[in-house]
């Protein structure tokens, strides 16, 4: 079967703020619930300045490592974990998700969050993975991480903190985050 050529992407622009965010968008689970964790960080530009108008999406497996196929992300009921959420950065370029720790999808696999970045000035969406830092053996065996130059690996690994993880996204520069392309892109 011949591949069709995909329609081009375009920047999200500056004016999505009244359209795409919605109530509960960044709360995959209610914050404060016993097993809730925070995934948060800053989005920074090539000058190290915060990006206050980025939109991030989070897509992840559940705590047992299973892909979830449940509706309800746009109208959260507080009980259904859908695995997907979105949030805008604030004026300091900071974002926060309340979610669950993703589980390993198979024994020995390194769990990760899939994060997608949109923003004014970002002409097409950017994909990256935020790996959990705990399982050193799994990280050392991960096909994506091992395919990266050593000095770039850390940009894809979240840092544990008091309530969960911190994951900063650098769009450009010295410690630029690794952004991904997939076959058939």
């Amino acid at each position: 079967m011949a591949d069709l050529i995909a329609t081009p992407g375009q920047t999200i622009g500056p004016f999505y703020g009244y359209a795409l965010p919605y109530e509960g968008d960044n709360e995959l689970v209610p914050p404060g619930r016993a097993d809730a964790i925070r995934l948060h960080g800053q989005v920074l530009d090539g000058a190290g300045a915060p990006v206050p108008d980025a939109l991030l999406e989070l897509w992840q497996v559940d705590a047992d490592g299973n892909v979830v196929q449940q509706p309800g992300s746009l109208k959260r009921d507080g009980w259904t974990f859908t695995g997907w959420g979105r949030t805008s950065t604030d004026d300091a370029g900071h974002y926060t998700f309340s979610t669950l720790r993703p589980g390993a999808t198979a024994p020995g696999k390194a769990p990760f969050f899939l994060v997608t970045v949109f923003g004014r000035g970002v002409l097409n969406r950017l994909f990256t993975r935020a790996y959990l830092p705990e399982d050193a053996d799994a990280l050392a065996a991960d096909p994506l991480l091992t395919s990266l130059p050593a000095e770039r690996r850390d940009s894809c690994i979240a840092a544990a903190d008091a309530h969960g993880y911190r994951f900063d996204i650098r769009l450009q520069g010295e410690a630029e985050t690794v952004f991904l392309t997939y076959p058939r892109h």
């Binding site: 000058a47 897509w59 000035g121 952004f179 392309t181």
Partner: peptide, 17 residues
């Protein structure tokens, strides 16, 4: 100008999620 990655996108094989 300050918001584009300067390094090429890294090829990944899609898995699970």
């Amino acid at each position: 100008l300050l918001r584009h990655p300067t390094k090429s996108l890294h090829h990944a094989d899609p898995e699970t999620i």
